[in-house]
């Protein structure tokens, strides 16, 4: 037992007695903590796996081509085509406004904004809108667009309210994507005599495309699932049969018109649940929820994949 005396511990090696004293309880606590922390990770994966499995089982026998392509019905299972159409319609309309404005705002925040009161006011506004409850944004849309502008419940009112709600997210993601472009690229371009705007337009923006694409897809995913904003802006009636040959944009009966009530898939789930009628309610909601979740998965995977492909292609060139 030559090592028992701590005083003769070789220089450089930890004093053995100190190590001993720290042991048992502390090491046990450390092991326990490791197990618990691993447990949280496993738990989250298990919950997600269970949810996906649940909907895969619940949607079995419900989701079929006719479920996606038919009109809703009171007597048979029917389909969700009009509400799915409305979801895509409102998504496109919202992104048409939110993406350009968000990217332009992101350019300002990343390339121009100085450290001053205006910038901090914009940041405060950004954070505020993000934290306002979606139902309150919906009510704001109700009073401004539906009542004051006399648009009634309409796809346009819903899209604008959604734009308001998601503009901060789009702006922030665009800003992050632009900030990720190395400063040297800007310096090189400016040194060649390019103006600031030429640099942004021809150097920074192209390099930021992968990040911007990811930002757009992530925003789209949130817009697609949102319901509370749309409840009182684009309405929650069961849509009529859509005649896609009616291309008259001013005619509220045309499915292409922005001035018609447009119940989306998420709102439809909420409506079915709150009204609680119909023999096929549970199947329809399960099927619709399964489609919503698949779209969310698709948006997430798409964002990753496209971002990766674009990065590879642009950096290789």
């Amino acid at each position: 037992m030559t090592t028992a005396n701590p005083a003769v511990g070789r220089p450089g090696s930890p004093a053995p007695s100190l190590r001993r004293k720290a042991s048992r309880g502390t090491i046990l606590a450390d092991r326990a903590a490791t197990v618990v922390l691993w447990g949280t990770g496993v738990l989250v994966l298990a919950i997600l796996g269970a949810i996906i499995l649940h909907f895969a089982i619940a949607a079995w026998g419900v989701v079929s081509p006719s479920f996606v392509l038919d009109d809703p019905s009171d007597t048979v299972l029917g389909g969700i085509m009009p509400v799915l159409w409305n979801s895509l319609y409102i998504l496109v309309l919202t992104m048409l406004i939110a993406v350009p404005v968000g990217i332009l705002g992101g350019i300002y925040m990343s390339e121009y904004a100085g450290d001053n009161a205006v910038t901090s006011a914009i940041r405060f506004a950004e954070e505020s809108i993000s934290s306002v409850p979606s139902i309150v944004v919906g009510l704001f849309g109700l009073i401004l667009f539906v009542d004051d502008f006399h648009w009634g419940f309409s796809a346009l009112a819903g899209s604008l309210a959604l734009t308001f709600f998601n503009l901060p997210l789009m702006t922030r993601l665009a800003e992050q994507a632009l900030r990720a472009v190395p400063q040297e690229e800007r310096n090189a371009s400016l040194a060649l005599g390019a103006t600031k705007w030429q640099t942004i337009r021809h150097v920074v923006l192209p390099l930021a495309i992968p990040g911007l694409t990811t930002g757009v897809i992530l925003t789209a995913g949130r817009v697609f699932g949102e319901a509370a904003v749309l409840l009182f802006t684009s309405g929650l009636g069961t849509p009529p049969h859509y005649d896609f040959t009616n291309l008259d944009l001013t005619n509220p009966a045309s499915p292409w018109s922005p001035f018609r009530p447009a119940t989306t898939l998420s709102v439809y789930i909420y409506k079915l649940n709150s009204e609680g009628l119909g023999a096929f309610k549970n199947q329809i909601v399960d099927g619709s929820a399964a489609i919503l979740i698949s779209m969310v998965l698709l948006f997430n995977l798409g964002a990753r994949l496209i971002g990766r492909v674009l990065t590879r292609r642009l950096t290789a060139a």
């Binding site: 350019i107 914009i122 337009r201």
Partner: peptide, 24 residues
């Protein structure tokens, strides 16, 4: 002009918050 346009896009969020606060 570009600077003014991108500034307007960013500042639109201030307008949204002010409108929202005022209306509610």
């Amino acid at each position: 002009l570009p600077k003014r346009v991108v500034f307007l896009a960013a500042a639109s969020m201030i307008a949204i918050v002010v409108l929202l606060l005022a209306f509610i």
